[in-house]
């Protein structure tokens, strides 16, 4: 087995180039505090990206990710601190709702784009009901975890490594992960082999829901308050992160480590653009341009690989 999957070469390279560029522009970022600040907000994005990756792995796409993470943030900020039991129960309900969504999509053969787009309204509405105006507080233990200062290595880096490791073991190394990837690769073969595709898709969505719940909680741990619109951009960020990390839209070909790297790259791209003192008008546009550039680079690399 090769040490580094060639699929990961490009994501790692793009992240490395960005890190060098950021340090070159802003040498003060090259410190414990600096790195923590740069990557802090990457933790929830990385979790959401892994969640999105699991959905993409089973050939679906989740356009409700941002709204769902926002809803979790609302529950975490508004209910979890005062009533831990009810809050935990609601978060569990969120995961079960995700599983039900997966089952519904498979059982009725519905287009995931439309169902999740509709669900983004449901999550958004529920978020507004739970927390009508931005506010709430973060549970003390959650803030303690997210703002912990371990020696030598910043928390953001440890958390990213942990997320990548857990996701890698679960998706790439376990029998469960193989079955889920097979569902994306060839659903018919899976069902001929005697597995229930409805159950498998429900499980894939449940696992994705778990990661998305963690993303919302991590976000509240960092920002210490919730809002029904807090994470709406996560939908786009998570899809972009999966693609940047070498994942493909079809066939169950994804990379959990790549997805986390993709999320880190996107977060860093935001900081890089602000260090460049780019006019705020062009901030969003530049992110789109970066995405297009990486995709172009990936095409060139693939073509070079084919020729050799």
């Amino acid at each position: 087995m090769r040490l580094i999957n060639p699929r990961l070469a490009l994501p790692i390279l793009s992240l490395a180039i960005l890190i060098v560029a950021v340090f070159w522009l802003q040498p003060r970022a090259m410190s414990y505090v600096g790195i923590n600040l740069l990557f802090n907000l990457a933790v929830p994005i990385a979790l959401a990206t892994v969640a999105q990756m699991i959905i993409i792995m089973v050939n679906d796409i989740d356009l409700s990710m941002g709204a769902f993470v926002s809803l979790v943030a609302c529950i975490t900020a508004a209910i979890l601190p005062g009533n831990p039991a009810l809050g935990a129960l609601m978060l569990l309900g969120c995961v079960l709702a995700y599983a039900a969504l997966g089952a519904l999509i498979e059982a009725r053969q519905l287009p995931a784009i439309v169902v999740t787009l509709g669900m983004s309204f449901v999550w958004g509405g529920a978020g507004v009901l739970i927390l009508p105006s931005p506010g709430g507080t973060s549970p003390v233990w959650l803030t303690a975890i997210m703002k912990a200062k371990p020696p030598l290595v910043p928390m953001a880096i440890i958390a990213s490594l942990l997320i990548a490791g857990v996701a890698h073991l679960l998706i790439m190394r376990s029998a469960f992960g193989v079955r889920l990837r097979a569902l994306g690769g060839n659903a018919r073969a899976v069902s001929r082999a005697g597995r229930s595709t409805v159950r498998l898709r429900a499980m894939a969505y449940a696992v994705a829901g778990c990661f998305a719940v963690l993303a919302g909680m991590a976000l509240v741990g960092l920002t210490t308050s919730g809002d029904a619109n807090i994470a709406l951009r996560y939908t786009l960020l998570s899809i972009a992160g999966v693609i940047l990390g070498g994942g493909e839209f079809t066939g169950g070909r994804v990379s959990p480590i790549g997805a986390v790297i993709g999320a880190l790259t996107l977060t860093l791209a935001g900081s890089f653009l602000s260090f460049l003192r780019l006019s705020p008008d062009w901030q969003i546009g530049a992110q789109g341009a970066i995405l297009i550039l990486v995709l172009a680079a990936r095409l060139l690399v693939r073509q070079a690989e084919k020729r050799t």
Partner: peptide, 20 residues
């Protein structure tokens, strides 16, 4: 606004589920 959003989403999904 919350209930309105929620019901819009539920209705869309219900229609799509039935229609398909």
């Amino acid at each position: 606004a919350g209930v309105r959003l929620l019901s819009t989403g539920v209705i869309i999904i219900a229609i799509v589920a039935v229609a398909s």
